[in-house]
Simulated assay, not measured.
Amino acid sequence: MSDVNLATIDLNLLNVVATVLAERSATKAAVKLYVTQSAVSNAMKRAREVFGDPLVVRESYGLTPTTRGAELLPALRAWLEEARRLVAKAPVFDPRTSTRTFTVACSDAVAIALLQPVLRLLKKWAPSTRLRLLTLDRLIAGDGLARGEVDLLIGIPPVMPPGLEAELVYRDPLECIVRRDHPQVRSKLTLSLYASLPHVDLALFGDIDDTIDRALARHGKAREVAVALPHFSSIPLAVLETDCVATISSRIARAFAARMPLKVLEPPLALEPIEIRQVWHRRSETDAAVGFLRSLVREAAG
């Protein structure tokens, strides 16, 4: 098939041809298209030049499609229907009836903090929707937000590539956990004891965050990280089996302590609270479903 330059063709002709072929009458086509009969006749003349075929022949009872015209009609109808679908307004999102699958990328810490309230709210407001969680490494490897495969990232984004928007979901102070029967820790951690204890820390992408090390260095102290783990959910298990201390967000610390024999203690030095944000791509700014999900996350965090 030779290349056709669509820029040289009036695509409105296709609508006229489809209507004439369907109605088998220039007069009826003109009425349906809200134009004059002469306008239809002129359009059909140009269409014959485009297709290199008469498209219709006049009979005593009206217009009859040529073989080429009859072949064109189903394809023209499909093309026009697709064109109408493309320019139609997006369907209204109704959470009560939607069956959409929401895809969220987050760490297991965010899942521990937010999964239960999010699920409760989805059950209440959008009972037929589904929730799919992805790990952060999966998000990064697949560039999920840019590709439109992920609705939200919830966490601590280290960088914000172009095209993304973010808003604060919640701030969470850091607290310490040790096992309840720890031989050295009673009801309070001193700075010296905190620095001397072995630590459990997170190595989310292989590297341990140095926030605590820098805070200790300002006091002339240093610590030893005895256990480095890739998942937040593993941290309390290591704490329970050792004399280690772990410093994690308050929501996570208290969620663990409610289920395990752990003590939650205030850190003996000033540490900035963590800031959890939700991040989305600008292309979803007008997606009512993603807007609903963002508001639901805010409510869950509250």
Rank of each mutant, 00 (worst) to 15 (best):
F102R: 08
T103H: 12
V104M: 07
A105D: 07
A105K: 11
C106I: 03
C106Q: 14
V110L: 08
Q116P: 00
V118C: 09
R120H: 10
R120E: 11
L121P: 01
L121N: 08
L121H: 08
L121I: 06
L122R: 11
K124D: 09
W125G: 04
A126S: 15
S128R: 15
R130I: 00
R130D: 03
R130L: 09
L131N: 08
R132H: 14
L134Q: 07
L134I: 03
L134W: 09
L136P: 00
D137C: 00
R138Y: 09
L139G: 01
I140S: 07
I140L: 14
D143F: 11
D143N: 15
D143P: 00
D143T: 06
D143M: 10
L145E: 06
R147M: 13
G148A: 07
E149I: 09
E149K: 12
E149V: 07
L153T: 01
I154P: 00
I154Y: 10
I154N: 10
I154D: 06
I154E: 10
G155E: 11
I156A: 14
I156W: 13
P158N: 13
V159Q: 15
M160A: 13
M160Q: 14
P161D: 12
P162K: 13
P162G: 13
G163W: 14
G163C: 11
L164I: 05
A166S: 15
L168A: 12
L168C: 05
V169P: 03
Y170Q: 07
R171G: 12
D172F: 06
P173W: 12
P173D: 15
P173E: 15
P173Y: 13
L174M: 12
L174K: 15
C176S: 11
I177A: 05
I177E: 03
V178N: 04
H182T: 02
P183K: 10
P183R: 14
P183I: 09
R186Q: 13
S187A: 11
S187C: 01
K188Q: 11
L189D: 01
L189W: 05
L189T: 01
L191E: 02
L191M: 06
L193V: 03
Y194M: 04
Y194R: 01
L197F: 03
V200E: 05
V200M: 06
V200C: 06
D201F: 01
L202M: 13
A203E: 04
A203S: 08
L204I: 10
I208Y: 04
I212T: 04
I212N: 01
R214I: 02
R214W: 02
A215F: 03
A215D: 02
L216F: 02
A217F: 04
A217Y: 01
R218D: 04
